[in-house]
């Protein structure tokens, strides 16, 4: 297993999903100035080919539904990175009725990047740490999600009906 992990850490594809305001710092990280491709990380449009789910900031409950769907569509091994203070404990939006407070109650978060908003250097640092952790087998949140599936589903069901899927349109 460890030999597999060693290779997994080398080339990571990050899901291109701008869930919150942290998405504004992703273009500088992806493009010429900070260039995260140096570390073998590129954005990927479809969840089925992605390894990292980067939650860029607060999640409204409406987005959380989509994020959970997206997470469950991704193939394991997969890793969740919480980005910004609002994924840790709600941050600025601690008393907002619309956003969730602790991301780790709903998804197994492997790594947090603190700050509002975190600097590109912090994001790079987190990715390097994630690479190291994956190679050494430290981050295995996706296994925890399977092991504690009932508990995660129970928390999710408190916010919305996990079995019903509804979209507002005519």
């Amino acid at each position: 297993m460890s030999i597999l992990n060693k290779f997994r850490g080398k080339s990571l594809w990050m899901l291109h999903y701008c869930t919150g305001c942290g998405a504004i710092e992703m273009p500088p990280v992806m493009t010429s100035r900070y260039d995260m491709e140096r570390f073998g990380i590129i954005p990927m449009a479809t969840p089925r080919q992605a390894d990292i789910l980067l939650i860029t900031g607060y999640l409204a409950v409406k987005t959380l539904k989509r994020v959970i769907r997206t997470y469950e569509q991704m193939h394991s091994p997969k890793w969740v990175v919480g980005f910004g203070a609002c994924t840790v404990n709600g941050g600025m939006y601690w008393d907002s009725y619309a956003t969730i407070k602790k991301l780790e109650l709903y998804l197994p978060v492997d790594l947090y990047i603190a700050g509002c908003m975190p600097r590109p250097e912090a994001i790079m640092d987190a990715f390097i740490e994630l690479r190291k952790g994956i190679s050494s087998g430290k981050y295995e949140g996706w296994k925890k999600y399977i092991e504690n599936y009932d508990w995660y589903k129970k928390n999710q069901a408190k916010l919305f009906d996990v079995k019903k899927w509804s979209v507002n349109y005519e």
Binding site: K102, E104, W151
Partner: peptide, 18 residues
């Protein structure tokens, strides 16, 4: 909204145990 937040988003946190 503060009461709503208390009702909806505060649950038993088992993440440390997990």
């Amino acid at each position: 909204t503060r009461e709503y937040v208390k009702d909806m988003y505060e649950t038993e946190d088992r993440t440390e145990e997990i």
